[in-house]
């Protein structure tokens, strides 16, 4: 499925069941999410990041603010860097976290080099059965979507199910538009985010 429409599915829920949620974007999702509309004060563009750690940043936020839902995006390259973090999420007991992996089989932001999972993806599957790994780790709700239509039809239902939740989306590469934007100053972003969260 094309990346931007896949993200739009979640962005649309921003006005519905994810109205009060925290959304953490990183890598490709951090590039595309701001293009979808006006920024929400509880959007956190995790950029620059430590690759692979967006779900853990999301877990920390979920533990800190159990009254809010947290959605954390990750790329497949980032997910491959830390599959163990799925066990950490379950062990921590966070019920209010959804991890969404955008799986395109590439290190997209560096120009589209293949990940170690790319060969498996070429056979018609995902880079890795991330959803299967999440299920084995103990995630309560797991989804794996290959088509945009299926994702559009199921997203609201998946996010309404018990957490923690894990979603693997088969995303298409964006090609030449891979460059990440220059972000606004981090201190300013964090201050605004914390103000929206009511913690400062």
């Amino acid at each position: 499925m094309p990346l931007r429409p896949a993200l739009e599915v979640v962005h649309k829920l921003r006005h519905e069941q994810l109205r009060e949620a925290i959304v953490v974007t990183t890598m490709g999702s951090a590039r595309e999410w701001p293009k979808l509309g006006s920024p929400h004060p509880l959007d956190f563009q995790y950029l620059p990041s430590a690759m692979g750690h967006a779900p853990m940043l999301g877990l920390g936020l979920a533990l800190a603010r159990p009254e809010r839902e947290v959605v954390a995006f990750n790329g497949d390259g980032g997910m491959l860097m830390g599959l163990g973090c799925l066990v950490t999420v379950v062990a921590a007991g966070a019920k209010n976290l959804t991890i969404i992996v955008l799986d395109n089989g590439l290190y997209e932001v560096t120009g589209g080099q293949a990940t170690a999972g790319a060969a498996e993806r070429a056979t018609g599957g995902g880079s890795c059965d991330f959803a299967g790994v999440a299920q084995a780790a103990g995630f309560h709700t797991v989804g794996r979507f290959t088509t945009l239509a299926d994702w559009q039809a199921s997203a609201a239902e998946v996010i309404a199910k018990p957490g923690p939740r894990f979603v693997q989306l088969f995303a298409e590469p964006v090609g030449a538009e891979y460059h990440l934007p220059a972000p606004s100053p981090m201190a300013e972003r964090i201050a605004n985010f914390q103000a929206a969260l009511g913690v400062v």
Binding site: F44, A50, G52, H53, A54, M56, L57, G58, L59, G60, L61, A62, L63, A64, R65, G82, G84, C85, V87, T88, A91, A92, I190, F193, Q194, L197, V199, V200
Partner: peptide, 23 residues
């Protein structure tokens, strides 16, 4: 709360989220 991690790099990012969330 004791938060057990699988690999130490996770710990810093979790702590970052906790801190940003007011903990």
């Amino acid at each position: 709360q004791l938060v057990r991690v699988c690999r130490e790099g996770e710990a810093w990012a979790i702590a970052a989220g906790l801190h940003m969330g007011g903990k």
